[in-house]
């Protein structure tokens, strides 16, 4: 299965991307108060959670191979 096959389609998906784009553009026009430097990078509140979420999913997947599946009544 290629990445293209797994990508969601449809109006909801396009609306979601447009909303994210709008939020990113909106972020350029609001006054921010960065505390650490890294949060001053444009779009930090989008790309950092995005990268975090991707990392979490792959970490969970790796741990699932090590610690799963459990073989008791909870391991269904």
């Amino acid at each position: 299965m290629s990445l293209k096959d797994t990508l969601p389609r449809g109006r909801l998906w396009r609306a979601l991307l447009l909303a994210l784009l709008a939020a990113l553009i909106g972020g350029l026009f609001v006054e921010s108060h960065p505390h650490f430097g890294i949060d001053a990078v444009p779009g930090f509140n989008a790309w950092f959670p995005m990268l975090s979420a991707v990392a979490l999913v792959f970490l969970a997947r790796a741990l699932a191979r090590i610690f799963g599946p459990r073989e008791d009544e909870d391991g269904r």
Binding site: P8, W13, L16, L17, A19, L20, A23, L24, G26, G27, V30, S32, G43, N45, A46, W47, P49, M50, A53, V54, V57
Partner: peptide, 15 residues
């Protein structure tokens, strides 16, 4: 705006 960015970006990753 920053909170909306966080929620929308996470939703994109989820899908």
């Amino acid at each position: 705006v920053f909170q909306l960015q966080l929620l929308l970006a996470t939703t994109v990753v989820f899908f």
